[in-house]
Amino acid sequence: MTESDRPLYAPQNFLLAGVGGQGTLLAADIVALVGVALGHDVKKSEVHGMAQRGGSVTSHVRWAEKVYSPLSAPGEVDYLIAFERLEALRYANMLRPGGVALVNDYRIAPGSVTSGGDTYPSEADEASVYAANLRALHVPAQALAQALGQVRVNNVLMLGVLSVFLDAPESVWREVIASRVPARYVALNDRAFSAGRAEGLRLL
């Protein structure tokens, strides 16, 4: 199956996945606003539930001339941006053939692993999923962000990686990021974005 089988109106689909507290929703906000700045119709969808920390968090973002469903269907996602390795695996089936998974090389063990009988998936498990006609790129975002002095910017760093795959001008990303983070963290996030871009160009 080739790219050209997809209808022309097919949107550009992003799925962001992480664990509560990792900044997944802020990253999704930025991807959505970049789409708006580029003049697309944009929809974004997330499910907030409980106030607790530590649950699985996802957000869908779609850019197109006209977006209907706010959710991408399995097999429709172009870019999976995952902030944690298990969450990447959980949503890998959302990717279209040839889709790209950008995976923060970071593990957070769920409760059923730390206090129950479950095991965290092995690298062989991961390889078997990503072999399915997907492109998985592991990004040491946690370490790179740590080197910038603040692990929390790993989310914006991952967007820097994503940006090299897309046509959007770099300046649009930087403006949107500056508009969405507190003033005193703008410079730090800008540096994180640059670090992500450099890493993205290396991986590309």
Binding site: G54, G75, L86, L89, N93, P110, D125, S128
Partner: peptide, 19 residues
């Protein structure tokens, strides 16, 4: 969907991350 590709079906059930 890729979900229906054979490779993905062989994967052991992933540990859940409930609230």
């Amino acid at each position: 969907p890729v979900a229906r590709a054979p490779q993905a079906r062989d994967l052991p059930a992933l540990p859940p991350r409930p609230p």
